[in-house]
């Protein structure tokens, strides 16, 4: 029983950055922008978070640095795809290559070649007084770190903004029919750019979660596809914040199971298969799901005739 509680605690812990990244993706994709730079943004966040925290000795500075750097990368991506009308998937690949080089290069610039890997203390668990004493749930849900709690708060906020406010109406309309939005006197490209920026902030913090909360160090393999999983969660969650939350938790569980089996060992099933589990899950779920409410103009560049 305790094993299962530990497993679930771990699952919730691992789901946080995926949910956060997917929420950013939801905001951007609702305006019609596929954030194919998400993998690069995660990596940048992980790097900037680590560097900021290591140099200042302050977690908050780390997360702030990750947020800003994530936003900057997103702005670069947004500028090229929205204003220079470049292809979103292609640009995403370019950003991924660039940021891989950039982060590794600047890790070296900032830290030189350390004799042993640099480490920091990971973000501590913040037990919520009272609630954390509830059996099972107390440990699983209320003995997590602050970023996790904030992520949970953001889910309803994003939901509210998207479905209940004028800004949300504009965001949704941009993804469905940008021409109509333009005719209504709203600058489509500005809305898309802003949405991508916000998505970048989310992605940056999500990336930093891996370096600051999970392992307490940085290397270039730290993200290895997690950004893309967040991207997939946004799809599977039907571009809905609540969907992102649910699928985020599902993928958190699949990651936790892999980690757990590897740690326990002796199951007879090779550990590589468990590592591959989340990725296989994306493939299977994308193939099985029939009904998607894809924003009609997702991925299509909006070219404004002038």
């Amino acid at each position: 029983m305790q094993n299962i509680i530990n497993l679930l605690t771990r699952a919730i812990f691992m789901s946080t950055p995926l949910i956060l990244g997917a929420l950013g993706e939801v905001i951007a994709e609702r305006t019609g922008m596929m954030m194919c730079a998400v993998e690069g943004i995660f990596l940048t966040g992980a790097w900037a978070g680590f560097a900021g925290c290591y140099l200042s000795g302050n977690m908050a500075v780390g997360f702030l640095a990750a947020l800003i750097c994530g936003m900057l990368v997103a702005m670069l991506y947004g500028f090229c795809t929205i204003y220079l009308t470049q292809h979103q998937i292609v640009m995403g690949t370019a950003v991924a290559i660039l940021m891989t080089g950039f982060c590794t290069f600047f890790y070296r610039v900032v830290f030189g070649i350390p004799t042993s890997p640099l480490k920091i203390e990971t973000l501590p668990v913040l037990k919520i007084p009272g609630l954390c004493r509830i059996p099972v749930i107390g440990q699983v849900l209320f003995s997590q770190n602050i970023i996790t709690y904030i992520t949970w708060l953001i889910v309803p906020v994003v939901f509210y903004v998207i479905y209940k406010t004028a800004a949300g109406l504009t965001i949704r309309s941009c993804g469905e029919n940008p021409e109509a939005v333009e005719v209504a006197g709203i600058n489509v490209r500005r809305i898309r750019f802003l949405a991508v920026m916000v998505g970048g902030c989310f992605g940056g913090v999500a990336g930093a979660y891996y370096s600051l909360c999970n392992v307490g160090m940085y290397n270039s393999e730290i993200i290895s596809g997690r950004g893309w999983i967040a991207f997939g969660i946004c799809f599977l969650g039907n571009w809905n914040p609540v969907g992102a939350l649910l699928f985020g938790i599902l993928f958190g569980i699949s990651e936790a199971v892999g980690i757990y089996i590897k740690a326990v060992g002796g199951s007879g099933i090779p550990s590589e298969l468990f590592s591959a589990l989340p990725y296989m899950l994306v493939i299977v779920l994308t193939a099985l799901r029939k009904q998607f409410n894809v924003p009609a103009k997702l991925g299509a560049t909006y070219v404004k005739e002038d």
Partner: peptide
């Protein structure tokens, strides 16, 4: 990593 940096830019 200068290779990736060059290719990226």
């Amino acid at each position: 990593s200068i290779i990736d940096l060059m290719l990226g830019f």
